[in-house]
Design a protein around this nucleic acid. Sequence first.
DNA 1: TTGCCCAAAATTGTATCCAATGAGGTCTCG
DNA 2: CGAGACCTCATTGGATACAATTTTGGGCAA
Lengths: 232, 232
Amino acid sequence: MSARGEKGKPRLRAADRVYEDIRRCILTGKLCPGERLTEELLAERFGASRTPVRSAIVRLAGDGFVEMTPRSGTIVKRRSAGEIADIYDVRALLESAAAGLAARSRTDADLDELKRLQDEMEADFEAADIGETENVETLSLLNKAFHQRILDSSGNATLAESASRLMDIGFLINTYTSFSREEIARSVDEHRKLIDAIRSRDVYWAEAVMRAHILGARNSLASVVEAEKCRR
Amino acid sequence: MSARGEKGKPRLRAADRVYEDIRRCILTGKLCPGERLTEELLAERFGASRTPVRSAIVRLAGDGFVEMTPRSGTIVKRRSAGEIADIYDVRALLESAAAGLAARSRTDADLDELKRLQDEMEADFEAADIGETENVETLSLLNKAFHQRILDSSGNATLAESASRLMDIGFLINTYTSFSREEIARSVDEHRKLIDAIRSRDVYWAEAVMRAHILGARNSLASVVEAEKCRR
DNA sequence: TTGCCCAAAATTGTATCCAATGAGGTCTCG
DNA sequence: CGAGACCTCATTGGATACAATTTTGGGCAA
């Protein structure tokens, strides 16, 4: 048996590196929606040939991060405010179900991990200066890890993957910079309620809290997007 | 503006052809779960070089049809009975929501198209000899088109795409050969109920019927899978 | 016989080369 | 001065050559 995604240093493929790099650039806003991705440029930028870059682009297109039009080129996918709202609606549907399942079948380890992530988030939030991109990024990552852990605790891998995919698309990290400290505080508080519900195995409460959490985020984001419109 | 998936004969790419071909082979059972896909073999089989084949494989991996392990190879993804049940659970969640939305906001054109598909299905079902793979395939395709149309009528493209992805994975066409004439009749009947609900704009009825329809299919399929176990 | 090790063959991953096509600029004509 | 056609060029798509790694088969020893 060989290494399969473990940390056993299986010498990462260039295609994987490039995939991660481009993805990161999109998530952090270094590549903006509508911006064109030329294979040769990316190849040069990331120190690889066009072959792994192409592979990465195909994967990113499958993930919904970019849009390939057959013989024309690839751009970072634009998303309207409506589309983003739709994504959050589906997330609410999937993640509230997952929260309910997690409340039903969680283990102690699940709960401990959620608490750990929550503590870390709170610590970072207290210390953080919102507006510093660094902090925003770690906060965003912790938030994603928290949600992901609940998904994984649901015991339905398909549910987890479907929701995770949407989470990735919606989580443009730089978006977070536009959230007020107040909104983030509310989010952190809702996470605490979520942990309560899951600890006490209250299925319907967990579902309700998660739904409210995500739909609340949707509305905050909607106003942010509306305010920013499309810059650059 | 250029052609993008329209019928304008934009000279399909080899990568797309190969993608469709492999996908079809998996769906129809010509490629079995666990079977290894070697690039050179596929290239020879479909009359292309390894480049478009690789591209197709990467896409298929993103879709969840195959599993690539980094320097080892690619196999058609195996799915346990539990995983298939999970997929159907998520489908029930997403598609019942979609059916509700469709009931709320359907147009007359949506309804006509659903009726048309339903008529075609019924005609095919009456005439068909279940067991003939040809008929099973067209029936399966019509079924998929029916569900897809409801998803599209929901007005939430993300919801439609998420559910569609799962539908594709679950719809191994050859699976249908194992369904009894009785079970298919039930399915057709449920479709009619669904049309009724959507026509009368009864949101909750549409949701309930869709949920029952999909969970019923899940249970039928579960017993089939259990019976077959893994052959070959 | 069983287990291990090494070598060769098969297969994946990457780079580069060539062909084809769409995009953009320019020139001409109205 | 503007619009349209044509031409050039940048970029994508595909093929092939090469490198690296994994698998597999055989041989050897316990």
